[in-house]
Lab assay of single mutants.
Amino acid sequence: HNLTITQGKLFFHYNPKLCLSEIHKMEEVSGTKGRQERNDIALKTNGDQASCENELLKFSYIRTSFDKILLRWEPYWPPDFRDLLGFMLFYKEAPYQNVTEFDGQDACGSNSWTVVDIDPPLRSNDPKSQNHPGWLMRGLKPWTQYAIFVKTLVTFSDERRTYGAKSDIIYVQTDATNPSVPLDPISVSNSSSQIILKWKPPSDPNGNITHYLVFWERQAEDSELFELDYCLKGLKLPSRTWSPPFESEDSQKHNQSEYEDSAGECCSCPKTDSQILKELEESSFRKTFEDYLHNVVFVPRKTSSGTGAEDPRPSRKRRSLGDVGNVTVAVPTVAAFPNTSSTSVPTSPEEHRPFEKVVNKESLVISGLRHFTGYRIELQACNQDTPEERCSVAAYVSARTMPEAKADDIVGPVTHEIFENNVVHLMWQEPKEPNGLIVLYEVSYRRYGDEELHLCVSRKHFALERGCRLRGLSPGNYSVRIRATSLAGNGSWTEPTYFYVTDYLDVPSNIA
Rank of each mutant, 00 (worst) to 15 (best):
E249Y: 05
R447V: 06
V324C: 03
G306T: 12
A394V: 07
N208C: 10
P270S: 08
V359F: 06
T333A: 15
Q380H: 14
K317F: 13
G264W: 11
R316H: 10
A399Y: 07
S398T: 13
H454P: 04
N360I: 12
N206R: 03
V331R: 11
C267Q: 10
R483A: 04
R471F: 15
V359H: 12
Q275N: 07
V439K: 15
R481D: 00
P312T: 11
V296N: 13
V297K: 13
G325Q: 15
S363V: 14
E249I: 06
P332T: 06
N490T: 13
V324M: 10
H454W: 04
Y259A: 11
D291F: 10
K278R: 09
F215E: 03
S342N: 06
V424L: 12
G491V: 01
D261H: 11
S342V: 15
E350S: 12
D385E: 13
L453S: 06
E247T: 08
F499A: 02
C231R: 02
Y445M: 09
V439P: 06
E452R: 06
A399R: 06
E224S: 12
V334Y: 09
P300T: 13
T303D: 14
T485D: 11
T494P: 01
P431F: 02
S509V: 12
S342F: 10
P244V: 09
N421C: 02
F499I: 15
R471V: 15
S392D: 02
S509R: 06
C269W: 08
I366H: 01
I438W: 02
K278M: 06
L293Q: 07
T485F: 05
R483Q: 04
Q256F: 10
K432D: 13
E465F: 10
P270M: 14
S239T: 14
E282S: 08
L237D: 12
K361Q: 07
I366K: 04
G308R: 09
I482N: 00
R240V: 12
L321C: 15
P300N: 05
Y396G: 12
C456S: 03
S262M: 13
G449Q: 12
K406T: 12
A263V: 12
T485G: 01
R286Q: 06
R319Y: 03
K357W: 02
L437E: 06
R240K: 15
S458N: 06
S268A: 15
E442T: 09
C266I: 14
E258T: 14
L228S: 11
R447M: 03
Y500F: 03
D506S: 13
P270G: 01
F226D: 04
A309Y: 05
K432P: 13
T485N: 10
L505C: 07
T502Y: 02
T210Q: 05
E221N: 04
S392L: 02
G489F: 07
S341G: 08
S223I: 08
P403G: 03
C468L: 06
N421G: 04
A395P: 02
P496C: 15
S283K: 01
I482E: 00
E404D: 10
M402A: 10
L453N: 14
H425N: 14
H425W: 08
G306L: 07
V334R: 12
G325C: 14
A309E: 14
K287I: 07
R240A: 02
K406L: 09
H416L: 09
G374E: 15
P314R: 15
F226A: 11
F226I: 06
K361N: 11
L225F: 03
V411R: 15
E378R: 05
A335R: 13
P387G: 10
D409W: 06
R313S: 10
V423I: 07
Q380K: 07
W216K: 11
P205L: 14
F355E: 08
S284L: 08
I418R: 05
T307Y: 12
N295L: 04
H294N: 03
A394P: 07
D291V: 09
F246Y: 13
D229P: 09
P431M: 02
F285Y: 09
S305Q: 13
R240E: 14
P332H: 12
Y448I: 14
E282F: 13
V329K: 05
E258N: 06
E227T: 07
G472C: 03
F462G: 02
M402Q: 15
P346V: 14
R318V: 14
N255Q: 13
P403E: 06
I377E: 00
L277F: 11
D408S: 02
R400K: 06
I438H: 02
R318M: 05
K432S: 14
Y445R: 02
T307N: 11
N339F: 09
V345M: 10
E388Q: 13
P413Q: 15
P270A: 10
E290G: 15
T343P: 08
D506L: 11
S344N: 06
V507L: 02
K432T: 12
V501P: 01
I209S: 08
Y478S: 00
C266L: 07
Q256D: 13
T485I: 13
P312L: 14
G476F: 00
S363A: 13
A395M: 09
N490W: 15
S474M: 07
R483L: 02
C266S: 11
